[in-house]
Design a protein around this nucleic acid. Structure first.
Lengths: 220, 220, 220, 220
DNA sequence: AATGAATGAGAGTTCATTCAT
DNA sequence: AATGAATGAACTCTCATTCAT
């Protein structure tokens, strides 16, 4: 409601552990009840602090919500940078990114719920500093894909933006369904097939492609 | 024993045109403000009826929200069935489905917002009869894909569920971004490339899959 | 809310049977739910008419409530006059009145509920023409008691008003308890003991009222 | 695990003086307007607190209503126990009880209105803990009367339940009339006559009764 | 005479947020 | 740094009542 982005008015050091406890409680409560259905009182109870204390650390309920991804995405981003160092080839890097992206959600169910069911539909979140972090992490996919085009691994006439949409869209779709319906029990098991499909397509190659070219050179 | 026998309380048809006007107004208001931020009073004003009248037609604000997709999805589903009759080949049918699915959102911006930003994250919606309709329309993709497997157009070792996830996920991702950021100005322009990618994959064929290439050199 | 006592604006003949049906339905519904908890719609449903029709016969929900006793009290009053003709002695008449009063409630449970739980606490009812009828029927007790004083059956130094309070109060107390708790299963069984107590008191006569002591001294 | 453990929601004592102020205001407003006609806003205004504050102390308007008698009845009950210690004889005790009961209402007009016009007709009140207190205080009458039977002061063949009905019924009748019509200006003035009547009955003793005492004194 | 449909007018209740301590 | 207590501000929903047909 106010433009108070980036921490509560008097963001003295306070107690970082308590701040984290509040964030984790908020994540849990929001995850279960949704944003409007969750009350600040619920969160305060879960964090074993008073409601007023929450306002010491966060300027509003919404800011509290928006603060949830920051930490986790930052860690995730660092992890990616670290790991990508050791992976060679754009295709392999892309595969790695997809695995990591999935694991981010698979290992943090409450976080997945908050992102998929609440934040994804929230217009205000887009104006947030926090969103930039999330957004930034999306650049990985695009960069890696571009790298793949440059070195000839990927088809050169593709828009990286679309490829990212396909990858993220598919993952988000699956994660959302898991959040809502519990359906794909194991997100990872879908990863490989998804990657294969993305790499190879779904069409059967019927010799129109080079594959079937039978080259017979007969002497004389 | 004569008058008020049978029938669900009061939700008779009443004036269907007015009902539709309320639904359309709700769609517009929800689309712009979100569910909790929109008030019944807003909707009433937009529909030129009193708040009480809204409750004559819908038993609660949430029921009003949930009633939005029914009509539109029903029409859409009929259209699909009709059109699919004239399309031959699973690949073509799939392409058609994707176009139609995109056009559903592209032509109904408010509806797209309501679905992508509000309904998709709403757990209660899943328990709804209305949801079943939406769900049902998702079966098309799976059926058509299965058909393609059966007749040899598509790779036989794929899970239709995953393919649907990729198609819908991508579309939803793009539509959501358009809802939030206005970004892909033209959703259709992405359709073809998306379909190509889905069909062919993103990898350059370097003859490594040339497995299939049979090169026979016979010496003299 | 308005001073619209005594029938709806256009009290054309309408259909007296329908009027009665509405009244009886109102009695039943009010009895079960209480005044504010009962809705005009409830009553309309029970009477198999539309809500609007109720307003043809009664100008408001409250007027409908207030119209309930009139009929029944009128009949009751006539019955009393008729029966009292054949009863001799004030004590017997009083006994008769008490029986009749109890039977009025015992035989009309819904009516009893409406009177005891709703009307008795309603200040507006006092301003009503209908109330006068009820009030009038209360005069019986006072008259009969006065008659008993005049002819020496009852103690001459009593205020009839108080006696009526005792009789009516006791009956109302018992009827109310039956309405709320179902407790005195059979109201009639209490009648006789109540009357005896009223007539004779609860004290054991220890000869301190020695008036009655006949002292016979026989010589030798 | 430290702060908000245990305890019923939020209904801690808070500020007991404020709680009492709200209760007294509620008593006054309910007394004048009745339950449904009184608004929480009315009460808040009268108590100089916000409406929300009322809900800090009481969970609903109805709970507020039901909380009114508790305090006053508790005090009253203690008073009775205290005073009864010094009164000898069941008849005197009964007389004392009646006086006290009347004085409870006579000295608390608003309270009398609330009890007689609102609570007495409220079915939900019966399910209340508060009702038990009221109910408990009713036991006094029955106990004292039984005591009187045991020690020969009262007729042994009477049902205490009925006697209580007569006493309470009469008092309630008178108090209710005073609430509604202001009629018996002075409730106390009726007390004595009522007690006399209860004790001695209304019939003129024509010597037919103790009559039976035959005292024969023979000379020598 | 009867009613389907519409609504004005509120009322109770909830909660995020504040502030004195 | 922490919070108990207080409240302003809304919002959903209900219902008695009306009126054109």
């Amino acid at each position: 409601m106010s433009a108070n982005t980036g921490g509560s008015k008097r963001s003295r050091k306070l107690n970082p552990a308590k701040r984290l406890a509040i964030l984790k409680s908020a994540e849990k409560i929001f995850s279960r009840k949704g944003f409007h259905e969750a009350t600040v009182s619920d969160i305060a109870k879960a964090a074993n602090v008073s409601e007023a204390t929450i306002y010491e650390y966060f300027s509003s309920k919404e800011e509290l919500l928006f603060s949830i991804p920051a930490e986790i995405v930052r860690e995730y981003q660092e992890k990616i940078v670290e790991i990508l160092k050791y992976v060679k080839g754009a295709a392999n890097k892309l595969r790695t990114l997809i695995y990591l992206h999935i694991s981010l959600y698979a290992n943090n169910e409450d976080y997945a719920n908050v992102v998929m069911l609440i934040l994804k539909g929230n217009r205000n979140f887009l104006k947030t500093e926090e969103y930039k972090v999330v957004q930034g992490s999306a650049q990985n996919t695009i960069q890696v894909f571009q790298e793949g085009i440059d070195n000839g691994e990927f088809k050169p006439d593709m828009q990286p933006y679309l490829v990212r949409a396909m990858i993220w869209g598919t993952i988000e779709h699956l994660v959302t369904r898991k959040s809502l319906l519990g359906k794909p029990e194991d997100l990872f098991s879908m990863a490989d097939e998804m990657i294969d499909t993305l790499f190879q397509g779904i069409l059967v190659n019927r010799g129109e492609t080079p594959v079937n070219v039978k080259l017979t050179v007969e002497n004389r």
